[in-house]
Amino acid sequence: MIEWTGVILQGVLLGGLYALFAAGLSLIFGVMRLVNIAHGDLIILAAYLGLSTTMMFGVHPFAAALLVLPVMAGIGYVLQRGILNQTLGPDILPPLLVTFGLSVIIQNALLEGYSADPQKLSAGAIETASVSVGSLTVGLLPLLTFGVAVAVIASLQWMFYSTALGRGFRAVSDNQDIAQLMGLNKAHVFGLAMALALAVTGIAGILLGIRTSFDPSIGGGRLIFGFEAVIIGGLGNLWGTLAGGVILGVAQTIGAKIDPGWQVLAGHIAFLVVLAVRPNGLFPRVQH
């Protein structure tokens, strides 16, 4: 019994990481109805940027985040204004295929720059540190990751519903023309949304890199986990996305407990079950 409690707890904490994969995806879909196929590769790009920063300056990965986050945000803004804004419109093909092309470019650029060898960010003692909760032992890093996920989602939620920036995001999402009449330049607003999304992706990339080894090919898988968390939670609901990540994480750790080869498959099956039973996700956005 206690063994399974531990497994589920691990899954919940893993869900925090998946929610971080998902948050950026959810944000840009909410603001501009864009689904970024390169999202996973951008997470891996952030992990590699973290790697280079730690090696170049000999700093801890958390310190590297101070550089990686603004760089990712900058990449996001430039990417959005330079390329992605041109793809937005009623036709879904251009954004899909352009981000797909980006995914291939990022993946192969990483291969070219860092080779296919798996890499890892080393964070020192925190990686193995653990705390005891009753008779359970919980890794400090997963706990921290989950805490960061909750903090990120709470801040995004606050930003979205309580700041002028968030008001702009919602207005542009509702009606681009009228928002433009209010003095919002949608190209800039979309750029800011992507910058924010990729900053979150930066956090996700660093935490992923500390947790497991990574190589240029694993971006697609991270995109899928993020996407599953979004759909399980329900489109347009950030807290739902966290719940979706947790459900995915728990399904995966339970699957892995039964048979290590089943970890990822169990997550996919959980996603398909939700899709079959509740196609709009478990917590779809309530229209007020």
Binding site: A171, Q180, G183
Partner: peptide, 27 residues
């Protein structure tokens, strides 16, 4: 662009009101 025109002092009350449904009255 419309946003640049807005800063220069032109405002439109659009046909059909076109309020932002995700925003409150005050927002």
């Amino acid at each position: 662009r419309a946003d640049q025109v807005a800063y220069r002092g032109v405002a439109l009350v659009p046909e059909g009101r076109q309020l932002f449904p995700s925003l409150s009255v005050e927002e």
